[in-house]
Amino acid sequence: MLRKIFVAAVFVIGAAQPLLADNAVDPQADFKAFREYFTKRFPKVQLNDFVNGPYSMDEGLRKQWQQIEEFPPYEFAVEHGKEAFAKPFKNGKTLGDCFPNKGVGIRQNYPYFDTKSGEVITLELALNQCLEANGEKPLSYTSQDMAALTAYMAFTSRGKPFDIKIPNDPRALAAYRSGEEYFYTRRGQLNFSCASCHVQNPGGHIRTEVLAPALGILNAMPIYRSAWENMGTITRRFQTCNSQVRGVPLPGQDVLYRNVEYYLSYMGNGLPISGPGARP
C-alpha cells in the first residue's frame, strides 16, 4: 500500500513539478515517463494489452469479456455508423467527403492540432463540423448516433497505432499542457483528479468496477457498456467520470475536454486502436 502510494507520488509529482518549475513543455519526456510508470508497475501486462482497459488488469473480467466478444454488442453501432457514413446529405455529399480516405482507417490520427483555428480537433468535433458545414443538424456528443459514427471509424482503424502529433507551435504545446493539467487536478466534492483513479489506482476496485489504466485509455473508445445497455462516446465517459466525483461536467467538446483527449491520446501513441470496446 505504502509503496503503491509512494510510486504514484513520484510519478504524479514528477510529472507536475517540472511544469511549475520552468515553463518548458516536453511531451516526449512526459510520454517516456508515463509509459515507464505503467510498464514498470504492471510488468506482466503486454504493452498492447493496456488498450483493453479493465480487462488488462483483471483475469476474471477477461474471461467474461471473451464471452461477450462472441456476440459483440457494439456490432449494430458499427453497422449503423457505416450506413450513416454512406448516406447522402440533402446537398448530395456524404460524411465521408469531409475526411481523408472517406473516413476509413484514420481514427488513429485524431485528435489533431489545427494550426488554422489554433485548437485541438477531436473526431467527435470533426464529425459535427462536417454535418454543420453541409447544412445538417449536429449530433449530441453523448448520443447513440454519434457513438455509431466513431464506432465505425474506430472499427475500420483497428490495429493501427495512435499517431498523435504535437506540432512545434506554442499554441499546440499550450493545449497539450492544459490537458495535462486538467488530468492531474483534483476537483469535485470528492476531491479526485482523473489521475487519482486512472494513474494511482488502475486495477483497483471502486465498488465492483475495475479501474482502467490511463495508458491506452482512449484506444478502445467508444464503448458499449452493459451497465448502460448502450454505447458511450468519449464525451459521455468524461462527463460520467466528472459526475462520479460530484464535480461539474463540462459541456460536450469543451476546449478543456478536447485538450485532455489530446494529452491522453498522445500518451497512447504507438498503441493500437482497439475500438469499439465492450465493457461490463
Binding site: 502510494i5 507520488a9 504524479v12 466534492q189 470528492l190 476531491n191 483513479c197 494511482q200 489506482n201
Partner: peptide, 17 residues
C-alpha cells in the same frame, strides 16, 4: 489529505459531505 496529501480518500468534513 492532512496525513497523506496524495490519498484518494475524500475529505468528508472539509468538503461538507
Amino acid at each position: 489529505t492532512k496525513r497523506n496529501a496524495l490519498t484518494v480518500m475524500p475529505p468528508f468534513k472539509r468538503n461538507l459531505i
